[in-house]
């Protein structure tokens, strides 16, 4: 009997939870705020679903209810992607080591 592809996706999901668990525990507490903003940015990879929805309309009907929701989701996710990565970059640029004085 063939294995349902869902099982493969479930395996990826479960293993990723474990990867996430160990990776996030190793994040230094002083970077917890950038961690939140960057997780925000990467979870907006949901934009791929929105792009599929937006591109789905045919030539005579670019705007239907489904594609409109897709377009809106593209904008929302794009705010997060650009905002999330840029604000993380801005924060991380501020973390500096002590200058060796003397």
């Amino acid at each position: 009997m063939e294995i349902d592809p869902f099982i493969f996706r479930l395996s990826i999901f479960i293993l990723s939870i474990f990867v996430g668990y160990y990776v996030v525990w190793s994040v230094t507490p002083s970077l917890h705020t950038p961690l939140m903003s960057v997780t925000n940015a990467i979870s907006s990879v949901i934009i791929v679903g929105a792009i599929i929805a937006g591109l789905a309309g045919n030539a005579n009907e670019v705007f239907n209810t489904s594609s409109i929701f897709g377009f809106l989701a593209i904008s929302l996710a794009a705010i997060n992607i650009f905002g999330g990565f840029l604000v993380t970059q801005r924060m991380l640029a501020m973390y500096k080591k002590k200058k060796k004085d003397k």
């Binding site: 937006g54 591109l55 789905a56 309309g57 045919n58 377009f71 929302l76 650009f82 840029l86």
Partner: peptide, 28 residues
């Protein structure tokens, strides 16, 4: 992978750009 660049593409890019600009503005 969608490959259908005929119709919706321009709107997808416009909405992407709008969101991106808002996001970048907020971030700075």
């Amino acid at each position: 992978s969608v490959g259908n660049f005929s119709s919706g593409l321009i709107y997808v890019l416009i909405f992407l750009l709008i969101g991106g600009l808002i996001g970048a503005f907020i971030a700075y």
